[in-house]
Design a protein around this nucleic acid. Structure first.
Lengths: 235, 235
DNA sequence: CGCGGCCTTGAGTTTACTCAAGGGAGGTGG
DNA sequence: CCACCTCCCTTGAGTAAACTCAAGGCCGCG
């Protein structure tokens, strides 16, 4: 992965227009377009546990997660953050909010030390006028975001907790060797993303393993019956 | 509203490049850009009750609803369509799906006679390369879509049925005179959009009127206590 | 008048939540 | 090396929210 090496001085990197991993964020780009983005983007690092942006504050830049793990959700005072989404770089942390009404609608916190890139919206809009291909790529990225949100909405409206977990496990198992997967987030965060409580997640996990669909051991889950799981996921 | 007059021959209208209501769909546009869209767009009308597009079929065009009422959702055999969204033109019926993976993820049916405009994706992409401002407008439209979906996701995850209804009523009452509003959809469709059953919607309506927040009479709802309602909506 | 949709209401059930208690893993200090 | 603390996950019991099913009423239409 062509991420910035951790020790590098960040400001210097930005000035020197170090190549950032745009293809992972936006898809294939012409060299000239990538250079425009390199020019526009400013990198930033945030240590583990710190806030990346806050709900209600102005969103003047697209925020991309280059490396590390971060969570988006609602931060409630004295109750911690209920993660609606956990991301591993490279991925967009804020795309719709800055391009839309200009206000962050969620809180984001770093769950490990993270490297970010921020693209100021207004200069980006100007750049799109001069480099229309960038516009297409942004359109694609937003369309993917719409698809993702649409899928989650469907799930939440029409599936029960068991099906949602099954669907999530199937998605995670995609492309994994032998259906063995290690959970990289706290279970409470997984639960939160799936719209259930940690207690319910725990019970559902047990239920699935009692039915022989999966085997759970701590943070390791082995999918024993992918087809059965898929069947449940579609119920 | 500059919609096509109902009697007009549709194919002729398309050929003559009749001005379609692009500003309502995409925001302010240069004349040249609107003409490009007029050139690209094909109008179509669908009579009441008929399908507009179907889940799982290829989505090769953006679909805009120019006039009339339509519903998007999942059409289940012998159970009717559970509306996840009811639209009154002008509005986008399909935006993310055609620009994204190219498959319709929902069914759409006309709830009145409707006028549509379809913009084929590939020619549109080419047009964006030549008219970058179109790209910006599409980006804005998609960002609004992301915002809308994000809001609904939050609501579904964190609010109970009463709060969701209160929020919906507040949104509907926005800008209405004296908080009197006539429901333009069947209550079962409203319920469906809010992620609850018709029975639950009915009980919630009663609960709100018993508490003096609204007065309900058939399809007419009068908002008696907007602030109280808003308070509930945020709970 | 009778019919078919649609909404409402009630009764009973299911699902998932809350609250509270217990157990395991990892880190720290004596 | 062990005791202890903390954080997290698990489990159980009780509860609350919303669903399903079934019956009844209203309204518009033929």
């Amino acid at each position: 992965m062509n991420a910035i090496s951790p020790g590098l001085n960040v400001a210097a990197a930005a000035r020197a227009a170090i190549r950032l991993p745009w293809p992972s964020l936006l898809g294939p780009l012409a060299v000239a377009d990538a250079e425009v983005l390199d020019e526009l983007g400013r990198t930033r690092s945030v240590p583990e546990g710190r806030s990346i942006f806050e709900r209600g504050t102005p969103a003047r830049s697209l925020v991309g997660l280059i490396e590390g793990q971060a969570a988006c959700g609602w931060n409630q005072p004295e109750r911690g953050l209920s993660a609606e989404r956990v991301l591993h770089g490279p991925a967009w942390l804020a795309l719709g909010d800055p391009l839309g009404d200009g206000q962050h609608r969620s809180d984001a916190v770093a769950q490990s030390a993270v490297q970010l890139v921020e693209l100021p919206v207004e200069p980006l809009r100007s750049a799109v006028l001069r480099h229309p291909l960038l516009g297409l790529r942004l359109i694609d990225a937003l369309a993917r975001e719409v698809g993702r949100l649409d899928g989650r909405l469907h799930e939440l409206m029409h599936k029960d907790a068991g099906s949602r977990l099954a669907a999530w496990l199937c998605a995670q198992a995609e492309g994994r060797t032998q259906g063995v997967l290690r959970l990289s987030e706290r279970k409470r965060d997984i639960a939160s993303q799936l719209g259930m409580t940690p207690e319910t997640l725990s019970r559902m996990m047990r239920s699935l393993s009692e039915r022989g669909l999966i085997a759970v051991s701590g943070y390791t889950v082995r999918v024993l019956d992918p087809r059965g799981l898929q069947g449940l996921a579609e119920a």
